[in-house]
Every structure is written in structure tokens, then in C-alpha cells.
Design a protein around this nucleic acid. Sequence first.
DNA 1: GCCTTTCGCAACCTTTAGTTGCGCATCAGC
DNA 2: GCTGATGCGCAACTAAAGGTTGCGAAAGGC
Lengths: 116, 116
Amino acid sequence: MSTPVDDELWSAIGDPTRRTLIDLLLAAGAGTATSLSADLPLTRQAVSKHLAVLDRVGLVRAEPAGRERRYRVDEAQLARAAAQLAAVGTSWDARLRRIKHIAEAIERSRDHTEGE
Amino acid sequence: MSTPVDDELWSAIGDPTRRTLIDLLLAAGAGTATSLSADLPLTRQAVSKHLAVLDRVGLVRAEPAGRERRYRVDEAQLARAAAQLAAVGTSWDARLRRIKHIAEAIERSRDHTEGE
DNA sequence: GCCTTTCGCAACCTTTAGTTGCGCATCAGC
DNA sequence: GCTGATGCGCAACTAAAGGTTGCGAAAGGC
């Protein structure tokens, strides 16, 4: 199944560093590559690259402010991403439940016919 | 927040190819590197490496059967992974809702005091 | 016994995350 | 209005991960 997910979005939020960045941005409201790198074991450049990725898939948006470049989470897009995460999770859950039903059904029918 | 997730697990299911492998294994019940590679635009080797990763984090388990090496999804582990996916999703959702509430509260108080 | 199938190991290529180094722009102080 | 600090982007380099091909070895079919 895997849901017809934008694979770009998935690979964007699949990276643990980028998820942390999103968390930090949500907590602080906004931030720059420099300010965010202060809270992470990463250089400004690395953070900047991740922000560029997140920007490309629309999860964050940058607003230039003087010599700074302030990033902010796009709430609508993040909500969409969150929904997709949950979707994959529940899809697997559903599949597992279905398998369990089938397994139980087989066991029941075996008990009836063979008794082993 | 990002939940104190095993980062290994996340990066395992973060890869779209590996998610597809899980889906295929769930659909077929079990499979080998060779059989799975037939359904994917990948060589057996690539699939084999992915299965090794999934095996290391416990999402699948291998049972040698003659000259074959049959892989099967570990349902308990996958259920755990699904739960973690859903958890991150709902965590973001909750955070977004909280932010929205705050924004609305600010707007309300501004309406009361200033009227602009 | 031979041929096929399936696998694991090793060498290699490419992409991506991360680093360092440099040059340009913007704001603050004097 | 220079001068210095701060924040940024671009470029070159390294390290790891996903992918490929090319072996040789073990298990089955006939």
C-alpha cells in the first residue's frame, strides 16, 4: 500500500535532523540557520542545506529580514505531512490486524477438520 | 518533541524502498531477496542489503530454508514502528493546534483592548 | 554427477549529509 | 561614511549510504 505519498515529502521528514529542525522551529516560532545551528551538533551550513530541502518541499518558508533569513514552519503543509505519517502507520496496523484475523480463521478451521 | 524514538528504527522505515519491501512482505506473507527483487526496479543485491538493515532493527526476520533465505515481517516490531509514526504525526498535530489556540487567544485579547 | 538456482562477499560508482574556507552584504559604533 | 562584527551563500572536499556488476560457494532438480 504505502499510500501514494509524495516521495519528496517523505524523504524530507524521514531525516531525523530535519524532524528536529521542524521541532525547534515549532517551539521557537521561527529561526535562522545560525540560531538553529546553535542548538544542534551541526554547522550553520549543514542546517542551511536542510532548511533548503524543507523549503523545497514547502514544509517551511523563508522571509528575508535584513541580513537575516528567518524560517517559519508552514502549518498547512506540516499538517499534511503529519497526516501522511499517521496514514502509513494505520495502514500497516490495519494490514496486521487483517493478517491476524486470517491466521485465527485458519486455526479455527484446522481445529474443526483435523483436530491436531 | 520528536519522541525518544530509536533513531535506527526511524531511518530504517524512512527509506521508501524499505517501506515498499515491508508492504510486499506483508502482502505475500514471506519472500526472498530474489523473489522481492522481481517486483522492484532493483537488483537482488540491493534488496538483500535493505533486508539486512530491516533485519538488524528487527522489523523482519530471516528463516533459512534450504538454499533459500526466507524473510518474514516481525508483526510486533512493525506494530511498534507504526505506533511511532503515528505518534510523531499526532505530536505535530497537537503542537499545531496549540499554536492555533494561542494565536486566536492573542487576536481575541487584541480585539478587546485595542479594537484594531 | 552435472546444471541450475540462490546466496554472500568484494570492488566500484553516485548521491547526499557534513565539513571547511572564502567572499559578499548588512547592521552598529564611532 | 569608514570599520568591524555578524549572517549569509557558493565552492571544494570528505564520509557514508544506496546502487551496480562480477565473482565463488552451497543446495536442489534431473
